[in-house]
Simulated assay, not measured.
Amino acid sequence: MRGVEHFLVAFALLTLVSKLASASDPSPLQDFCVALNDPKYGLFVNGKFCKDPKLVTADDFFLAGINIPGNTSNAVGSIVTPFFVDKFPALNTLGVSLARIDFAPYGGLNPPHTHPRASEVLFLQEGTLLVGFVTSNQDGNRLFTKVLNQGDLFVFPIGLIHFQLNIGNTPAVAISSLSSQFPEVITIANSLFGSKPLINPDVLAEAFMLDKTVVQNLESKF
C-alpha cells in the first residue's frame, strides 16, 4: 500500500506542477497594453475576432503572392514582404507566420533588427548571404555568423539582434518562418535615430561614444 501512496502523492505533485506551468500569461502581440477599468475606451488586442467556423472555406486558408519579387531599389537594397496575420487571417491563433526577403546584388542588406515575439528560421532560396545574430549582454554579446548558399537554413533565436547581407553578385531571395502570427520587427537604427520625437542626441552620443554632431546627422537621415 505504501508504494501506491507514494505513487499517488507523486502523481498529485506532477499534476500540480503541470497546472502551474500552463497557467502563464499568453505572449503579448502588441508593444504594450495599458489596463482600463471602463471598457468604453477599450480596444481588442492579442489577436482578432474569429470567423464563424460554419462560414469558413478552403479559400480562407489560401494566400497567393509569396512568389512575387519585391522592389529592392531603396537605401538598404532589400525589401521584406511579410505574411503576418493582418495579411493572412487564417494564421490567427496558430502562432506562425512567413516573410519573403529580396536582396539586391552584392550589398543588399536586411539591417540589424529583432523580432520581440518570435524565433525565425530562414531558408535561402536563391543567392549567397552572410547572416548572423548577437547574443545578450549576459552571454557576452557573442556573434554567431555563417555564409549561406542556396538551400541552406539558419535559425535566429527569439529577441536577438540579427541581420542578413547579400555577398553574391546576383539577387538573393530568402523565405523566413516565424513562431508568432505577428512577430513584429524592431529595426535598431530606425528605432534609435528615427524615433518620434527624437531621442536627445546627448544620450546617443554618450551611448555610442560619438560626437554629438555625428548623432544629429544620423537623426536627420531617418
Rank of each mutant, 00 (worst) to 15 (best):
residue 2 R to Y: 03
residue 4 V to S: 11
residue 7 F to S: 15
residue 8 L to S: 12
residue 10 A to W: 01
residue 11 F to C: 13
residue 12 A to V: 12
residue 13 L to N: 15
residue 14 L to Q: 12
residue 14 L to M: 12
residue 16 L to D: 02
residue 19 K to Y: 08
residue 20 L to A: 09
residue 24 S to N: 03
residue 25 D to V: 00
residue 25 D to A: 14
residue 29 L to E: 08
residue 32 F to N: 09
residue 33 C to S: 13
residue 34 V to R: 11
residue 36 L to R: 14
residue 36 L to I: 15
residue 37 N to R: 14
residue 37 N to P: 03
residue 38 D to P: 09
residue 38 D to S: 15
residue 41 Y to Q: 10
residue 42 G to K: 08
residue 42 G to I: 05
residue 44 F to I: 15
residue 45 V to Q: 13
residue 46 N to C: 06
residue 48 K to E: 11
residue 48 K to S: 13
residue 48 K to P: 00
residue 50 C to K: 15
residue 51 K to W: 01
residue 53 P to E: 10
residue 55 L to P: 00
residue 56 V to A: 09
residue 57 T to C: 05
residue 63 L to N: 05
residue 63 L to R: 12
residue 67 N to C: 01
residue 68 I to P: 00
residue 70 G to N: 06
residue 72 T to F: 06
residue 72 T to G: 08
residue 72 T to D: 04
residue 73 S to W: 00
residue 73 S to T: 13
residue 76 V to S: 07
residue 77 G to W: 02
residue 78 S to R: 04
residue 79 I to T: 14
residue 80 V to T: 10
residue 80 V to F: 01
residue 83 F to S: 11
residue 84 F to M: 10
residue 85 V to N: 01
residue 86 D to R: 11
residue 88 F to K: 01
residue 89 P to L: 13
residue 91 L to V: 11
residue 92 N to R: 10
residue 94 L to H: 09
residue 94 L to P: 02
residue 103 F to S: 02
residue 104 A to S: 14
residue 106 Y to R: 14
residue 106 Y to N: 14
residue 106 Y to G: 14
residue 108 G to N: 04
residue 109 L to C: 12
residue 111 P to G: 07
residue 113 H to W: 12
residue 114 T to A: 14
residue 114 T to H: 03
residue 117 R to N: 14
residue 117 R to I: 08
residue 119 S to A: 15
residue 126 E to N: 10
residue 127 G to L: 05
residue 128 T to R: 15
residue 129 L to C: 07
residue 130 L to T: 02
residue 138 Q to K: 14
residue 139 D to N: 10
residue 139 D to A: 12
residue 140 G to E: 01
residue 141 N to V: 00
residue 141 N to F: 03
residue 144 F to K: 04
residue 145 T to G: 06
residue 148 L to V: 02
residue 148 L to I: 03
residue 151 G to Q: 08
residue 152 D to K: 08
residue 153 L to R: 12
residue 153 L to C: 11
residue 154 F to Y: 15
residue 154 F to P: 00
residue 155 V to M: 15
residue 156 F to H: 04
residue 159 G to K: 11
residue 161 I to G: 02
residue 162 H to A: 07
residue 163 F to V: 00
residue 164 Q to D: 03
residue 166 N to R: 05
residue 167 I to R: 06
residue 168 G to R: 09
residue 169 N to T: 11
residue 173 V to S: 01
residue 174 A to Q: 03
residue 174 A to M: 07
residue 175 I to T: 05
residue 175 I to C: 02
residue 176 S to C: 08
residue 178 L to Q: 07
residue 178 L to W: 03
residue 182 F to E: 09
residue 182 F to R: 09
residue 183 P to C: 07
residue 184 E to D: 15
residue 185 V to D: 09
residue 185 V to R: 04
residue 186 I to E: 05
residue 187 T to H: 03
residue 187 T to E: 06
residue 188 I to K: 04
residue 189 A to W: 01
residue 190 N to L: 06
residue 191 S to N: 14
residue 191 S to G: 09
residue 192 L to V: 07
residue 195 S to Q: 13
residue 198 L to R: 15
residue 200 N to V: 06
residue 201 P to W: 06
residue 203 V to E: 07
residue 204 L to F: 08
residue 205 A to R: 08
residue 210 L to K: 03
residue 212 K to Y: 01
residue 214 V to C: 07
residue 214 V to L: 13
residue 215 V to H: 03
residue 215 V to W: 02
residue 216 Q to L: 13
residue 219 E to S: 09
residue 219 E to P: 01
residue 221 K to W: 00
residue 222 F to N: 02
